[in-house]
């Protein structure tokens, strides 16, 4: 069955406290060169099939449920084709 992947990120202009904490941890570990870490969310939806109607519905759900447009952006909706996986 195909999987639809929705990725959501906190808006770029907003403080991402989780990411900031991880950035601080990397620096304390002595790892150099990581100026910023931002943490987002990935939703994997397993569906029977993918067509335009399903994708339109997923777009709607991504905007209304998986993300809150006040604080987050839906950055991508992609389809993973599992049919050829070993």
């Amino acid at each position: 069955m195909p999987t639809i992947v929705v990725e959501v990120m906190p808006k770029a202009e907003l403080l991402d406290p989780q990411g900031k904490a991880v950035t601080g941890a990397l620096s304390r570990m002595g790892r150099q060169g990581y100026h910023e870490v931002r943490i987002g969310k990935r939703f994997e939806l397993t569906v029977d099939h993918v067509d335009d109607a399903v994708l339109a519905e997923v777009k709607e759900l991504a905007d209304d449920v998986f993300s809150n447009s006040v604080i987050e952006d839906v950055v991508s909706i992609t389809v993973l084709d599992n049919t050829v996986s070993a």
Partner: peptide, 17 residues
Amino acid sequence: LAEARLIPGAHTRNAHQ
């Protein structure tokens, strides 16, 4: 209330975590 859009705005984690 914010998630239901009955009031404006949203909430995130406290700034100090």
